[in-house]
Amino acid sequence: MLSPDTIKSFQTQISKAEANLDVIDKKIQESIEKAQQAGDVDNVMKLSALGSELKALKNSLPTQDIVGDDAELERAAETLGKINTQMDSIMSKNNKTAALISNVSDLITNISGFISPTNPTDTEDSTDTADTTVPENSTQA
């Protein structure tokens, strides 16, 4: 029997993740528009692909069908908490295009690892390096 506190904690993280993903989606679209204006087709393609994939993964986040025991759910909430921290980091910075692409790629790896734990990518390890933001002045849009 799952405790209400554990369920609540998990659902809070899921809601936060969904809201964060919406903000990141807007950031990606803004970057696509900038890249379009700059004629940077390569980055438009990359960002479109990442944006689409992120959206699909958002649709695959668990919602009400919670299964498992308390310990399992606590681990899931903790992992999701780390992913949310990673997203906070992406949202708080004014990423250049290349940095955004790099950070969103890492984020996708972690979210897909969270959704499908059998994926060889180890979610727990990869979320430990949550702040994967490339320095802002390292690349140009």
Binding site: Q29, Q36, G39, V41, V44, M45, S48, S52
Partner: peptide, 19 residues
């Protein structure tokens, strides 16, 4: 949102083909 992403990548395809 989905349609917007599809249009982004299709526009990029047009540019790529032109270039």
């Amino acid at each position: 949102n989905d349609q917007q992403y599809i249009i982004y990548s299709e526009m990029a395809q047009v540019t790529l083909l032109s270039k």
